[in-house]
Design a protein around this nucleic acid. Structure first.
Lengths: 192, 192
DNA sequence: AAATCATTTCCATAATTATCGAAATATTAT
DNA sequence: ATAATATTTCGATAATTATGGAAATGATTT
């Protein structure tokens, strides 16, 4: 029962760095690009092992290689490291971690394919089921019990996608939000 | 053969966050402080397991608990998270990872007890052996082959400890650096 | 003091991850 | 082509980590 579970970006990032030897590699690559052989010798591990570690780091976009002769010269993506740490500084990002709790594995897969790293919607899913997953994700930006004027609703929705009108319509249609009066007030409908 | 290896701070940080359920916990605690029971129910794990995860997070200073009746109410240390991510942004910090490569287990232990999180020297070891470990660590801030005027040497040493004079004297004494002339120039003596 | 309750600790097991040697691949040199 | 070389992939094993049930702890209530 292989858990072919596609893991989300932030988790992959931490897992990649949660190993002493991989941190060593990062440190060495921070000085200068190096070959597998060189790294392997420096940290005292077999080459196949080193290669695995590099693959893991590459999957997290922390390193990449260019080929030179027989050698694969790996170098560090300093900016990827920095971008990730900068993301951690945003409260937004941390609060989104709790999305993981409710969404099950399949939901998560949908989210990870339709959201970009910042949590914005890249494109809208055509399938109804998947669209609903996205909408449930969006609606969490609204406090239950609170009432929002249309202007504020738009502001919030714009954080997710520029097509705020489509989002607003869909949220109403799928009964995730309620609306009152003509250009009136909106509120989040409690799930349960 | 228990590897009672005391691990350094950054590695502990990443390991703590390299688990999906622990990230969920972080997300939940970002909303509000919660008890073990509550967390356990929310993420669908046994209480003992949840307790283990919390312990791991606590060891990385990411959460802490206050007691309220029978309950242990855990809350998130947002600032610890942010401080760590800010550190990652410093090149200094990343380059220090390569220190891990050369220093063996015992060296590392010395370093971790005499350095603070920023890599500065908290207090100087009394034991000669340990002092040398610290000095070898400091001397790496100097490029081999380059010559430094005393003014610049002082600047660099100040990054490690305010007692720059002691550091300068010790580096000369233990032949990790050389000096020429009266108030002259300094250079790093190549190790080998 | 006894009973109850939330949490932690202990212990055993399941799952994941790291590691290495050997074989396969791909590239350059002869 | 063949040989040499660096890296990756494969397969198997060792080491680490996650997990939950049961017992122990510590606090509160009766």
């Amino acid at each position: 029962m292989a858990t072919q579970e596609q893991e989300f970006e932030l988790l992959g990032f931490f897992k990649a760095l949660a190993d002493e030897n991989r941190l060593k590699i990062i440190g060495l690559l921070a000085q200068q690009p190096r070959s597998v052989e060189e790294l392997s010798a420096a940290i005292g591990l077999g080459m196949s092992t080193t290669s695995h570690h590099l693959e893991r780091l590459a999957k997290a976009s922390l390193v990449s290689a260019r080929t030179d002769g027989h050698y694969h010269i790996y170098s560090l993506h300093t900016d990827a490291l920095k971008e990730m740490s900068q993301r951690l500084l945003q409260d937004e990002q941390i609060r989104q971690l709790s999305e993981l709790v409710n969404s099950d594995a399949t939901d998560r897969k949908v989210l990870s394919s339709f959201l970009d790293g910042e949590g914005r919607i890249k494109t809208f899913p055509a399938q109804d089921k998947k669209l609903q997953v996205i909408l449930r994700y969006v609606v969490k930006a609204f406090e239950p019990g609170q009432r929002y004027p249309e202007k504020q609703v738009n502001e919030i929705l714009l954080r997710f996608n520029e097509d705020k009108a489509f989002l607003r319509r869909s949220l109403i249609e799928y009964r995730l939000m309620g609306r009152e009066g003509g250009g009136g007030e909106y509120w989040r409908i409690d799930p349960d």
